[in-house]
Nucleic acid binder design. Sequence first.
DNA 1: TCATTATTGCAACTTAATCGCATTAATAAT
DNA 2: ATTATTAATGCGATTAAGTTGCAATAATGA
Lengths: 124, 124
Amino acid sequence: MKRRNTATKDAVLSVIETSGKAMSQTAIEEKIGVVINRATIYRVLNRYCEDGILHRIAADNGRQYFAICVKCDEAEESLHHFHFRCEKCDTIECLPIPVNFALPKDYQLTQVNCVLSGVCKDCA
Amino acid sequence: MKRRNTATKDAVLSVIETSGKAMSQTAIEEKIGVVINRATIYRVLNRYCEDGILHRIAADNGRQYFAICVKCDEAEESLHHFHFRCEKCDTIECLPIPVNFALPKDYQLTQVNCVLSGVCKDCA
DNA sequence: TCATTATTGCAACTTAATCGCATTAATAAT
DNA sequence: ATTATTAATGCGATTAAGTTGCAATAATGA
């Protein structure tokens, strides 16, 4: 399944890059300027996640947000940082705060999802 | 809005207590033994959350889980612990690991939701 | 025992996300 | 440059989680 370059893919990534934050499908659709089908946006986002370009954050509002992780090319450990979801502007940002924990014996880890919620500095 | 005692309420709480873990509505409905409507279970769970009996965990699978927090009567800080979601047995447990972080200036915190996922000790 | 109103069940609804399928279009082969 | 292959897209339908309106039921207090 070799990937092809399309305007849609570029546009989606560009919107997220510009925002500098993690975005939901809805937010991307609103900001992207052109009309792109919802299913297509989700498929583009899922492909980017598979390819390690984006990472997915499951927020406590039950929705998915997608972020470009500047450190995704480094160790997996770099994924272990906190996210902050602002309830006012509906965005999520990656905080430069590492998540530290020691899992009890015999537990196998596959995912870390730490989301703090409240009001961000821009909306305070 | 004074609360009334019902068999349904007791049964729901009892199932969660017995499991010793956080449970989803689906899991509760399966384990509870009697037929209780989905909407009713959600309403019971939401009421328990309002009353501080249960707390709600938003898992990275997009679903809600409900747990009896033994420390809910203590300081709010006690809520800041990690949860572990086992992908095999579909339960979430509260880990005795505190979540530590220092929020950047001007951020206001209202929620902490930290979920680690993988395989728990019982399923390993 | 009766009145009040919280609780419940049912069906409909909302929202997030996915999926099947026909069509379009990016890339590789000729 | 033309054609063949198949990834990507749009559309509509579908799934799943959770909520809501409303009428019926039942817990509590008078």
